[in-house]
Computed example of a mutant assay.
Amino acid sequence: MSDDANLIERFLEMLVSETGASHHTLSAYRTDLEQASIITGGRLCTADREIVRQLPSHWRELQNSTVARKSSSLRRFFGFLVEEGFRDHDPSDALPKPGLVRSLPKTLSHGEIALLFQLIAEGLDCEPVKPATVRLSAIFELLYGSGLRASELVGLQRSSITGDKPFLIIKGKGEKERLVPISQQARVAVGRWAGFVDQKEKWLFPSRTGHISRIRLFQIIKEHAARAGINPAKISPHVLRHAFATHLLEGGADLRALQTLLGHSDISTTQIYTHIDSARLVELVNHRHPLSQLNLLR
């Protein structure tokens, strides 16, 4: 194993042991570092400022958010190398610090959500009902009704669901446990699906090798969207999570409550939704403030 490959592995092991980094986070770091290693000819761990300064020339076609992530990955890696004594200086000050403009999250309209659930309801009214339809109902109730991440949903255990409790206990990013409220409608949908799952199964959504994968979940969601007449490119489990957040804010929820429901450790992550909250606040001022009822231009 080359020095780069060996030190990248040690760095990733540190992230797991010290920060509890998720599989998705580790995969992103690995990709960024391995690509940089290839660009530098396998000399990333010994690269000087001149070599590091050349890296951004390979990122010209990438979005600012991706460039910022790659720069962050490399800064953290070089900091690790210095701290662990693998090199004596940190060249990451040669990396760019692009202004990061966060794009608004993709979401779905209330009408599109209604179409998705209407098709499920029609399937549940059929006799005999198909197990795949019952599973689909449980999946959509949890993704849109509770805002679960894809990884959280596929990793749900049967023991996470109890019929008399209005919440789930799930493990989110960094293996942190959090409580997720679950509606009565979702409990019914999940309970109905549980009846189709062998009681010996550990997972709520099992497969032949464990639980269904995130890739299979994406496929299930997109297949259903196509049947409902919605462009599959518009939807994913994460888009349903965004729709959950967006529609809650439109209904009057505040950002702090949303932060808790989404499992964000930092409110700044939740603030991507402030465009919705701000619009609601403007409407409140324009239509609910006492001065808005007075005609001052007489």
Rank of each mutant, 00 (worst) to 15 (best):
L115G: 02
G172W: 09
S146Y: 06
L124T: 06
G172S: 11
A114G: 10
Q199L: 09
G174L: 02
K173C: 10
K202D: 07
G123L: 06
G195P: 15
L179P: 09
V129C: 13
K234S: 11
S146V: 08
P237G: 09
R208N: 08
R208F: 05
R216C: 02
H238W: 09
L240K: 12
I220W: 03
H238F: 06
R135C: 10
S207D: 11
F140I: 06
G99W: 10
P181H: 10
I169D: 15
S213K: 02
A114F: 05
P98N: 09
W193D: 13
H110F: 08
I161W: 14
E175Q: 15
Q199D: 13
F196M: 08
V101L: 07
E223G: 02
I212M: 01
F205A: 00
A132V: 14
G155V: 01
A150F: 04
P181I: 07
F140V: 08
E127G: 00
G147N: 03
I170G: 02
K176Y: 11
I230E: 03
I169T: 14
L104K: 07
H238P: 15
S207G: 12
R102K: 15
F167H: 14
R102N: 07
G123P: 14
T107A: 04
A226L: 11
R178C: 10
L104M: 12
S236P: 15
W193Q: 12
L143S: 06
A138D: 05
F218N: 14
L168P: 12
S236G: 09
V188M: 10
G172R: 04
G123S: 06
F218P: 07
Q185N: 12
L143G: 06
F196Q: 15
I169W: 08
L217E: 06
I139L: 14
A121V: 02
E152D: 11
K234L: 12
S146I: 08
L156R: 10
Q184T: 12
F117I: 06
I169Y: 03
N231W: 01
R178W: 09
P96M: 05
V180L: 10
F218T: 03
A226M: 04
P232G: 10
P166V: 00
L156G: 07
I220N: 08
R227M: 07
E127S: 10
